[in-house]
Design a protein around this nucleic acid. Structure first.
Lengths: 349, 349
DNA sequence: GTGAAAGCGCTAACAA
DNA sequence: TTGTTAGCGCTTTCAC
């Protein structure tokens, strides 16, 4: 923590190399149109002085920041108990890094933070935003759109019913749920229950929808709302067993929920999958593989989802800069990209 | 994703309010020394125009960014399987937000990323850095110190043995481990084993040290190196049982490891805690409380650790700006802050 | 191909 | 108290 040594400027490098600032700038930015011997001299001066461009000065003129904000609305602790978020971030980070962009993380703990985030985005610190909008009634997305920053959403937003051009990436929650339930039905199970996630999140709602696609309006006692946590899964499973002891299969809205389900089943002496078959969702490998028995589940590639979101955003930023002002006349913007899910069979069903 | 409307500048606001740019600037930055009526007029103009200051321009002159980088060296996927990182991040984010600072996340996947990170830090994008240096031989810390950015480390760095003034925050791993082992010994256990973490991380090494503090150089067969994962815990436990079937207690280096240990114990028909008592470390509530039986473990307040690191960093940044050039003559810098750990008793020991 | 010069939007002396 | 002015370090026309 010694005192900051003033960093050398373009000026200094120019002086040392005996050229003008403009030339140094050119070399630093790729060196096109500068003759070789000069390039060499400048490079050397940069090296010797340890010159690093000042990004603030650069942004001031270029209006680019090579930075993207990741906004995570985290009203509940849950987001953190779940590796989901970490995996997304990793995918995003990789892709961003590959394109020399920085990741600015904006975590929000509640409504108070919303305006702060909106102000930040409007402040032109970043070129775009990746937003994880967890809940249906979240006002954040609206605020963000208001900030006028190109944005890609993670997960289908619960509002804006296709009217505005919202770009999002999501997993095929509904299709995955259908596959899970069909698998259970294919096993000959007739009393297939579903323990849902929080239904104000589209992912949970979509999975329920998928369940209904296959089961129709089966016995309503077979659907219990829960919250994507192991503890919630336990509570829901107890309730389910009380309500409807003859249940012979459970589709849990995610693997964490399923782990709670398995625990209760074990405690109540029901064998899995003989007495009750269980399928999860996510394929969080540490959870699904380590559970007892290992969990049959629906895999979604979360990291890839982060990557695709990022790619989508960067592409649209690029368009913007390459004067691609003319939006595709056919389709103003790709609305949503839905990634496939696959059923992974293990021992639980 | 409509086309960007050029944001209004100070100039525009000044014109609208009928004052000078300087006055607007003053109002925007707190409004000290500006008479009330003017303040009001300026506020109004800001409001009407939707003015938001351009941070790049501001940073260019103030040399402050109100942003802090969080560097996470993540050579292994493990970091993500573990809520540890998320909790830290959350503590950091809260504290940063409270002080109007932004969080720039730098994830590194390997050596290649190191220079990138160093360049970024040297580039003067951020005022300081919070670094999680996971491994003993990691070259990253050196690079970062070279970048001349004030830095606080999370976890005691494995190098720089007090010679340089390294600021870090850590949990009392050694003391916590001692407490855990003493607890087991107090239970009357005589063959207390330890399954370690990766010993190139100081946290793991310190916990082993704490174990040795109590057990001395007990039967070396009782110490098995592992990797902080449930799978690793399983493997280590199997090995342990083979090597030394009479083991009657296990101190696992973290809760994830302990969960693997419990699984193997169950599979081998050993009762916990009757036959083998088990203690973990971390008190990751979802893991420790949900395990079967619930885990006795050493609690460390991870979120608080993130908060304290941040506070430490911000304070030192402040000093720097309040012309506090003169370092404390007595102690050049607080070297390390070690947070206490506490034993949490549940059913496993 | 290279340099000179004009700003990007803001803050901070300094004057008034 | 308020306004004027001079840059912060960089990119980018525009001449040469």
């Amino acid at each position: 923590m010694s005192d900051t040594v003033p960093r050398p400027t373009l000026e200094a490098v120019a002086a040392r190399a005996g050229v003008s600032r403009a030339t140094v700038s050119r070399v630093v930015n790729g060196g096109d149109g500068v003759r070789e011997p000069l390039v060499e001299r400048v490079r050397q001066a940069v090296e010797e002085l340890g010159y690093v461009p000042n990004q603030a000065a650069r942004s001031l003129v270029t209006k680019r920041h090579d930075a993207v904000a990741v906004v995570i609305a985290e009203p509940e602790t849950r987001v953190f108990a779940d590796p989901f978020f970490a995996l997304q971030l990793r995918g995003i980070s990789k892709e961003l890094t590959a394109h020399d962009n920085q990741l600015v993380l904006l975590l929000t703990e509640g409504r108070d933070d919303h305006t702060r985030v909106a102000r930040y985005l409007a402040g032109g610190h970043v070129d775009g935003a990746l937003v994880f909008s967890l809940h249906v009634d979240d006002p954040l997305p609206e605020l963000i759109q208001g900030a006028g920053v190109p944005t890609v959403f993670g997960g289908r937003p619960g509002w804006g019913d296709g009217t505005r051009d919202v770009v999002y990436v999501d997993s095929d929650n509904r299709g995955g749920a259908r596959a899970a339930v069909r698998h259970l039905v294919g096993l000959g199970r007739t009393r297939v229950a579903h323990i849902t996630g929080p239904l104000d999140q589209t992912s949970a709602a979509d999975r329920l929808q998928g369940y209904r696609d296959v089961m129709g309006d089966a016995d309503p006692r077979l659907v219990v709302e829960s919250d994507f946590t192991p503890g919630g899964g336990e509570r829901a499973m107890r309730e389910l067993l009380d309500r409807c002891p003859e249940v012979d299969a459970v589709f849990a809205a995610n693997d964490l929920t399923a782990s709670g389900v398995l625990r209760v089943l074990r405690e109540r002496g029901r064998r899995v999958p003989e007495d009750v078959a269980v399928v999860g969702f996510d394929d969080m490998v540490p959870v699904a593989e380590q559970s007892d028995p290992p969990l049959t589940t629906v895999r979604q590639d979360i990291e890839e989802m982060g990557r695709i979101m990022t790619r989508l955003l960067l592409r649209s930023l690029d368009r913007r800069n390459t004067g691609g002002a003319a939006p595709d006349p056919v389709r103003p913007a790709p609305s949503g990209e839905v990634l496939p899910t696959t059923l992974v069979r293990r021992a639980s069903a």
